[in-house]
Design a protein around this nucleic acid. Sequence first.
DNA 1: AATTCGTTTAGTCAATAGCCTAATTATCTA
DNA 2: TAGATAATTAGGCTATTGACTAAACGAATT
Lengths: 106, 106
Amino acid sequence: MRMVKTFEALASEPRLKILAYLSKATMTAGEIAERFDMAKPSLSKHLSILENAGLITGVKKGKFIHYSIIQDHIVNSLDGYLQEVCPTRKPLREESAAKAKGEAEG
Amino acid sequence: MRMVKTFEALASEPRLKILAYLSKATMTAGEIAERFDMAKPSLSKHLSILENAGLITGVKKGKFIHYSIIQDHIVNSLDGYLQEVCPTRKPLREESAAKAKGEAEG
DNA sequence: AATTCGTTTAGTCAATAGCCTAATTATCTA
DNA sequence: TAGATAATTAGGCTATTGACTAAACGAATT
């Protein structure tokens, strides 16, 4: 159930985009909204879905709500899932790391 | 787009269950179907969604179609996504590994 | 030729997702 | 206190999703 909720939150173009923004910096709801051609309430809904899944958190400071990513949750969730579903994960993970390294260098 | 498709495929209880079965062994469509209280066409749809997302593959052998998980795809997709969205991922990953190790020992 | 495995197509239905506008709440400012 | 601003909540509308049944189909076995 928890994993489904996490994946549901991630299964959306605008929500992945929000997470990409928040991976670089904390932003207010308004700042995020500026970057989308979408009504504010719709965006607010996306934010609440992400927050509800534990992927981001919003902290109210005066008039504004500052949203930021919760990296621990994303990493541990996806990482944990991989461990469950991929028993032979370790070598693949090393391979993946090697590939990433090669791309960065090449 | 590709990530959205992957997450959409994963955002479903029955589909996560199918992947869990396939993480242990290759199974035919019928063997999978036996484990669900669901009409065959519905299950067939789930299988095609997973296959279309590149998470599983079906190989026809005679009358049967043998499905198996494509671990490389799952690992590389989720791993790749984590690298994009979590710049400070590395230390967290180590922490996660340490936690997993502790649990296995405890 | 008949049966089995599995998919596909078509039609129906209920529930959910995603968007909108309008209204509301909370806070700041003059 | 009135007015402006930030963001959410509420309500409505449409499209999609996910399930079902029933029927048909292709491919392989018997």
